[in-house]
């Protein structure tokens, strides 16, 4: 019961954080230079459109009333109209969100699978030349600008070798019956490969380093010594007891990584013209499409905050010391 309560408190806390972020967003877009109406109204909208928006968002009202109108609209999923697309921002975002999530999760799964194995392996090879050579390389991958890595992969594997397409999610002129058919097509997957690898190469460092240092700590624990005294097989000692324990914090970091990755997506999606939330945000900001920029930002923030919550939840589920307190 108290576990449920502490989770509830955490949820409430994060709801407050979300509210604060929403408020910051409101201020950020209202306080920007120029006409305050600019946040929702493009001069090229027809007079009726402008009227309707002014009413909907209370743009002729004082700022504090606008704020409450804004909150009320948000609660109903009402994000305004995109200047460029002339469609509701929400529609646009729901359209792009799957692309971003697919890119994020596929790259993180690859990164974590590799990072966990390599981290455990490096811990095992501790003090060897392999380790001495591998560590600086791993640190260097963390020091790489993601978009630059994307550029290099693009130049080599797309432009020079022609193995993969240069951008987008599918070849021009192709169409699919359903989203599922699209996402499982080789066409989509070959488009996904390079941006996915870019993000994966950048992200593998965190799970790798975390796994390695956890593994080094865990292997010094008494229960590992006991497993050896029990005459258990090396597999049981290293994997069943060592890795299983070292994995706990790595798994929790996955959720946090989703949040970070989403931010990194912004540049990589731009390099690969991947129609996701990040690229949309950049384009919207560049084109002064404020409602869309605001909506994309908000969606990213929601996922980041939700992932923080998920991380807490994961931790309390995966660690029996907490889940069975």
């Amino acid at each position: 019961m108290s576990k449920f309560k502490s989770f509830l408190i955490r949820t409430l806390q994060l709801a407050l954080v979300l509210w604060a972020v929403v408020t910051i967003l409101f201020l950020m877009f209202r306080l920007m230079p120029g006409n305050p109406l600019a946040a929702y109204i493009d001069p090229t909208f027809t007079a009726e459109q402008q009227e309707a928006l002014i009413r909907q968002f209370g743009l002729d009202q004082p700022l504090w009333r606008q704020y409450f109108t804004y909150l009320a609209n948000l609660l109903q999923g009402e994000l305004g109209y995109s200047f460029r697309y002339r469609t509701p921002v929400a529609d646009r975002i729901w359209l792009l969100l799957p692309n971003t999530l697919i890119l994020t999760f596929s790259s993180l799964i690859v990164a974590y699978a590799f990072g966990i194995l390599a981290g455990a392996w490096l811990a095992w090879r501790r003090g060897t030349r392999t380790e001495a050579a591998a560590l600086p390389v791993v640190l260097a991958t963390r020091a790489m600008p993601e978009f630059w890595l994307g550029m290099v992969l693009l130049a080599i594997f797309s432009f020079s070798l022609g193995w993969f397409p240069a951008g987008g999610t599918r070849s021009a002129g192709t169409s699919y019956d359903s989203l599922w058919a699209l996402y499982t097509s080789s066409n989509f997957l070959s488009h996904l490969f390079l941006p996915m690898m870019t993000l994966a190469i950048y992200s593998q460092g965190l799970p790798l380093l975390l796994m390695r240092s956890n593994m080094l700590d865990v292997m010094k624990e008494d229960f590992i010594t006991m497993a050896k005294i029990k005459g258990l097989s090396p597999f049981a000692v290293v994997i069943r007891h060592g890795a299983r324990n070292a994995l706990l914090p790595v798994m929790t970091s996955f959720a946090i990584s989703v949040g970070y990755q989403l931010q990194g997506n912004v540049v990589v999606e731009s390099v690969f013209s991947w129609p996701g939330l990040g690229r949309e945000l950049v384009n919207a900001v560049a084109a002064s499409d404020y409602p869309l920029a605001q909506g994309a930002f908000l969606m990213i923030a929601v996922v980041v905050i939700a992932m923080n919550l998920l991380a807490d939840l994961l931790y309390s589920i995966l660690d029996p010391r907490i889940s069975h307190a």
Partner: peptide, 10 residues
């Protein structure tokens, strides 16, 4: 907490 909730790069 709020600063942790803000997507940094965006």
């Amino acid at each position: 907490d709020v600063a942790f909730g803000i997507p940094f790069l965006p």
